[in-house]
Write a protein that binds this DNA or RNA. Sequence first.
RNA 1: GGGGGGAUAGCGAAGUGGCUAAACGCGGUUGACUGUAAAUCAACUCUCCCUGAGUUCGGCGGUUCGAAUCCGUCUCCCCCCA
Length: 381
Amino acid sequence: MNMEKFRFEITHTCKQSGARTGILHTPHGSVLTPMFMPVGTLATVKFVSPEELTEIKAGVILSNTYHLWLRPGADIVKEAGGLHKFMNVERPILTDSGGFQVFSLSDTRKINEEGVTFKNHLNGDTLFLTPEKSIQIQNDLGADIIMSFDECPPYPSTYDYMKNSVERTLRWAKRGKDAHMRADDQALFGIVQGGEFEELRAMSARALVEMDFPGYSIGGTSVGETKEIMYKMIDYSIKYLPLEKPRYLMGVGSVDAILEGVLRGVDMFDCVLPTRIARHGTAMSSQGRINIRNQKYERDFTPLDPQCDCITCKNYTKAYLKHLNKCNEGLGQRLLSIHNLRYLIHLTEQARQAILEDRFLDFKNEYFKLHHLDKPNAKGF
RNA sequence: GGGGGGAUAGCGAAGUGGCUAAACGCGGUUGACUGUAAAUCAACUCUCCCUGAGUUCGGCGGUUCGAAUCCGUCUCCCCCCA
């Protein structure tokens, strides 16, 4: 294992678009950016083995503080030798702080200055997560990149609500940073919030930069806002962030938003979308989204995407994948998950190549045109 | 040969005089899904010129203002006795 410390290196900036390529060096290896990071909330990318993640050239993979805290418990993961050993992953791992659960489990939680009270969805227990506790759990889990505990606020939120939330999240960022005991081998990212309000995004970003994090996330996106607003959120955040630090756009994984993010200087993306829609029978492809349940694929003995190099596309037909889906066979979910992840990873590979060749804007425009994403109100995929 | 039970939409199965084009499940069709409480959720699934109309509950014939529901009869299926 390469025990290099965390370091981000920009390798090229596209002369045509300003998008950039880079290398993220971590204690568990170096990975190229821009990159898409598969999500493995419960210490597994659902249906996909670590060996398969290697096969599809995944860079970083995600896991989750809140969920691992509940089960199996940070102590057990620590005793196993950390998350990498526990789940047999040798590549870099990033853990989210539990901040997204403040959003997704909002029906059963309460926020105060000190932290967030959750109701354990497994047994009803009352749980209290603080910025310090989140960092401590993440220290125990041992990911290469960890997140500040934030509130991912809902959209829409009023300016006043958002202002209070952003200010509290900034105080939490400071508290988390102060509690971080493994700054030498775990990079703690600050998370920019502020909804669609530029003034608040600016305040959030500036204050985090002042605290000097090794990387910055853009949060509060993909929570129901339109793409146009999401792109504004990115713009309003990135313009206040230092060029030389990595930027991570949280929770974004539709192809159009990834390319728009890269164009704006985002280096890292993660999303459950490819794996979730795969389990639900939808494949991403160079022809757009394919709902494999559709009757028209019953006798379609061609691969999902002839241009794809994944094991699913090299070995299986749509008719077979439809059959597996109809029979609720796990292999179908696995093959589709592998394919969708590979599709997005391949997309970022193409993006990197285009940046290196100073033609990213052309690449993006051609891609959008090909997929009819260039029209107003186009439905992305 | 005698006795008993049953036949409801693609399948299974409720319903036993009006509120029933007929619950529910399966199957089928189509959508949704963005730092994962999601192998989940939603809509539609007799026909049509579909915010309304038309034909249905094994067949035929009755009773009734009104029948999938009551009566007669026929056909088919299942069980028991001989």
